[in-house]
Amino acid sequence: MAESAQATQKRQWGMVIDLDKCIGCQACVVACQSENNIPVNEEAHFNQRRAIQWIHIQRYWEGEWPHVKARFIPVLCQHCDNAPCEPVCPVYATYHNTEGLNVQVYNRCVGTRFCANNCPYVVRFFNFWEPAYPNSLKNQLNPDVTVRSRGIMEKCTFCVQRISRVRRQAKNDGTPIADGDRALNPACVNACPTDTLVFGDLEDPNSRVSKLRDKELVEGGRGYHLYEHLGTSPNVIYLKKVDKHAVEEPAHA
């Protein structure tokens, strides 16, 4: 009984990012790099502006010295329901799967970079070079994640390998997938020390993400989407920072 329900259950993976809690520590970035076999970003990569960071922390300065405040916003693939990157790929290398994920099929990609141009959030990354890892890291590569060769696009997958593993496990055991399971959560969510990032199933009314969404977005709270006017309907929901002593309106949001 539980098994069949498990199989047919509709899922919509999503994330809530509470900016009020983000301290800009970049733990999520490092966790992501190691989980997903992202080549080490050396200084040269940043100078070439070709660094690959599936999740990155945007930092803004607010106010005039000495009353300067740092603002952080983690940006990752928004897994839009209406993703602009999907229709432009000539070879279906990027498409929407049944669980609401915007997935990238590395094998199909020929590297037209069309999707990267059409992503308003600029969260798609191109492998300009063959990936290189220092010798000390070579045995540390995650066997569940493809090492991407040069010439193809990549981006945040919501750690789809972890989702698959848990789904498989749950199917074998006949148990439901638990919300907030650390084995299910993407690496960035597990690494976050302040519980800024919350991951879960937006279709499940009891999950933390859908409760947060109902409270903050549907009923009107701090929730918002990035670039709502583009109509991409992302699955990542941001919660505004609350600052009683705010100097001025943030740059956007």
């Binding site: 070439q48 070709r50 990267a116 191109f126 300009f128 070079w129 040069r150 010439g151």
Partner: peptide, 15 residues
């Protein structure tokens, strides 16, 4: 032989 890296393109100047 080397990949698109030999061009001046970067992120976000993909074309």
């Amino acid at each position: 032989n080397k990949g698109v890296g030999v061009w001046g393109q970067n992120r976000p100047v993909f074309w």
